[in-house]
Amino acid sequence: MEIIVCIKQVPDTTEVKIDPVKGTLIREGVPSIVNPFDKNAVEAALQIKAAKGGKVTVISMGPPQAMDALRECVAMGADEAVLLSDRAFAGADTWATSYTLAKAIEKIGKYDIIFCGKQAIDGDTAQVGPGIAEHLGLPQVTYVQKIREVTDTGMIVERAIEGGYEVISVPLPAMIAVEKSINEPRFPTMMGTMKAHKKQIPIWGAADINASEDLVGMNGSPTQVKRVFAPERRGGGEILQAEDEAGVCVLLVEKLREAKIV
């Protein structure tokens, strides 16, 4: 089974702070980690590899320091890793990112399953996995909370929906985006860490993956971010209290008049 896992390096906080002037994420002083959902994706891939044999390749698009995130996945047990890093990739939205990852996957060539985490904790879009599937023309299942069965030609998975789950049979190759509840990611081992640091991880640029310069990075991104801002803290509401409901109504009407709503 040939499995590719797409991962992202993200700042280690669920409360990403935003520079109010520049409208970008403040990354200084925030340690970087492998996006937690992506670790679930790596774990899912490793479990299938343990059961069925094969190879797990992790790929990531990002700046050179994203190499650390790839090494961590290799330390967990992934066989190969590839970093997609090129100045041309900078400023990519989810469309351009998924195009770039899809081109890299095309270059790798052989794959049965592409795993992604359901979303990244910094952008929270949950669009890159589905985008990859669209670019490659593959079936996809998102929000996968359990893998019931894997055969050489297909998978049966549970897809989380509000208040329950769907059981979906999907032919392979396919893109599977996983939920946190799917598994408990293993810790990287010491031996794995040492191996990961000795491993040569290739870096591919736009030319290496035959990606069109017009379709990657800022150039390839139809999304225009007008402004990024942290919503202002809202103060607590006011609770109107009176002897009975009628009394509250009187107070409420008074308030609405004051506000010139009625």
Partner: peptide, 15 residues
């Protein structure tokens, strides 16, 4: 410290 040393300490800390 090497990256490897930092990574190992990080793993142990997380564990």
């Amino acid at each position: 410290l090497s990256d490897e040393q930092k990574q190992i300490v990080k793993i142990v800390k997380e564990f």
